[in-house]
Each structure stands twice: as structure tokens, then as C-alpha cells.
Design a binder for these strands. Structure first.
Ligand SMILES: [Mn+2]
Ligand SMILES: [Mn+2]
Ligand SMILES: [Mn+2]
Ligand SMILES: [Mn+2]
Lengths: 140, 140
DNA sequence: CCAAATTTGTAGCCAAAGCTACATTTCGCT
DNA sequence: AGCGAAATGTAGCTTTGGCTACAAATTTGG
């Protein structure tokens, strides 16, 4: 083979890392949402909203706790640490921008919401900045 | 909890399915690229370009064969079936549209290429259609 | 206040996708 | 032709993220 394009390898590597972070991001955002609505996030509610069995949610929460993003006691709700809440804010903001960008280029509301749930995790900070700039230009 | 928004669940489910397809899509596209360049795709080249160890590529190819997307004999190159080639075409086309859309809204070339590698797998056919329409409008 | 329903925890299974280490085959070159 | 290098295969380990089944705790309604 000839030389291998380093940009391409980097792209695949980036996609893999993003995929690895995706679960964490979605759980943290959801816990934050539930906390805002009900004051706390219950395992059952997390599982229901994410569409998984409850042991799957339990396992994910265990990882969040291990990573210092959440805390919880047995049979009680799950709460975000400061770090977790900060991440949630970032993720929520990015989610909104991605949906807005999709809407702005003509993607139907419903579809935009569905696709954004996956796309968001692969939008880098530089792409996000470009999206925001575009939306500002368009709004003015 | 109150009722659970079915759209949201659907979004997470869709993202999970897309993530599951992502590997297949990238491998098939890459095999097609290598076939165009060298006449065949070797395991070593696949591994090098995707940035993984060679047994990882071997395992992925085994799955493609299982799924009827590729064929190969021991110690020889990997080739796509008709179905595999068709998928490769679709994936390649979508990849190009995603990069073009990102560029069109102001994402720098290099960044667009990196992010597209992950984003592409979460772009549904309806969103793709919207992207194409937008690009056509903008070009005219 | 207690029994039933709900929620949560835990055990253990599976598949996917990565890795290293080592065996085998093929290729390139003298 | 044969030897060393390169490519490929294979074994086996790890982590992650799903799942079901069942046990234990908590909450609720009569
Ligand atoms: Mn998401
Ligand atoms: Mn989201
Ligand atoms: Mn890709
Ligand atoms: Mn691609």
C-alpha cells in the first residue's frame, strides 16, 4: 500500500471516542432533565425514557458514579455532582444547537429531533461554533 | 412519572441502531475504496486505514462475510458482494453530502472531514434529502 | 398497619469491538 | 530453491452495553 492518510485515521478514531462518550452524555442530560421535573431521577424513569431495561440503567449509573458525575444511595434517586451538572448543561446546549441547525437547513422538526440524538455526540466544538455562527447570521 | 415521550425513546433507539451499523458501513466503504485503488482490499491495509490492530479487522471482515456483504479466502484479499458494493455506494454518497453540508454552513474543511466520519451514520434518509435540497438551492 | 404492587438491586448470560501473543502462510529476493 | 520478512490466522483476554430472572426493599391503598 502507499502512505495512509492521517486525517482519515484520525476521523475514525474520533468517531470511536465519540461513540464511547455518547452513553454518558445521554444519561447525564437525562438525569438533569428528570431532576428539573421531579427533583430527582429514579432508575425506573431513566430506563423508561432511554428505552432500556432497568438493570441497564443501573449499570450506566454505576459508571457515572465511578467517574464522579453522579451520586446515589440504594433505593433512592440519582443526583448529579457539580461536574455532572456542568456536563449536562454543555450537552443540553449542544443538543439544542444541533436541532436548530438541522431545522435551519430544512430538516423537518420530528426528524431533526430523532437524528440529533445520535449526531450531537459527533459534533466537535469547532463544528458547534460554526453552527452557532451560521444560526446567528441567519437570524439577523 | 408522567407519560414518556415516544419521540424521545425513538431517538435513543435510532441512535443505538445507527451506532451498531457504523462499523459495517465504514468497513464496506473502505473495502470499496481499496478495491478501486489496488484491485483488492488486504486485511493489513484495512487495519492500517481504520487505525486498528489486524485481528480487529479480521473479525470485522468475518462479520461482513456472515452478513453476505463480502467474500474472501484465507491469506487472500477481501471482496465485496453485489450487496456489499451497493451499500458502499450509498455510504460513500452520504459521506460526501454530509461533508458538503458541513462545509456549506461554515465548518472548516479539515474539521468537516473529521466530524463527518461519525455524523454520517446518524443521518437518516429524510435528513439526507433535506441536506441535498439545501445544497442544490445554495448552488443555483 | 399490613399486604400487594412497585421499585431497585444482583446474578449471570450474550454479542460486539478492541487488544496482545503466538502460529502459520505467503511473498520477495538472492 | 530457499530464507527471512511480511501478512494473515487464531487463541484468548477485557470492557461495554444490552438482556432475563429472581431477590429484596420501599411505597401505597384499603
Ligand atoms: Mn444523544
Ligand atoms: Mn441529546
Ligand atoms: Mn464513518
Ligand atoms: Mn465515511
Amino acid at each position: 500500500m502507499t502512505e495512509t492518510d492521517p486525517t482519515q485515521i484520525k476521523g475514525f478514531d474520533r468517531a470511536r471516542q465519540a461513540a464511547a462518550r455518547a452513553l454518558t452524555e445521554d444519561y447525564v442530560e437525562m438525569i438533569s432533565d428528570l431532576a428539573a421535573e421531579f427533583g430527582e431521577a429514579r432508575i425506573t424513569d431513566l430506563a423508561a425514557r432511554l428505552g432500556v431495561a432497568h438493570p441497564t440503567a443501573t449499570k450506566a449509573v454505576a459508571r457515572l458514579k465511578r467517574e464522579g458525575l453522579a451520586i446515589s444511595r440504594p433505593y433512592r434517586g440519582v443526583f448529579l455532582t457539580e461536574e455532572g451538572e456542568a456536563l449536562a448543561e454543555t450537552v443540553r446546549a449542544r443538543h439544542r444547537v444541533v436541532v436548530a441547525l438541522l431545522r435551519a437547513v430544512g430538516v423537518p422538526e420530528e426528524v431533526a429531533e430523532l437524528d440529533a440524538e445520535g449526531i450531537e455526540h459527533h459534533v466537535s466544538s469547532r463544528t458547534l461554533a460554526a453552527f452557532e455562527a451560521y444560526l446567528n447570521r441567519k437570524t439577523d
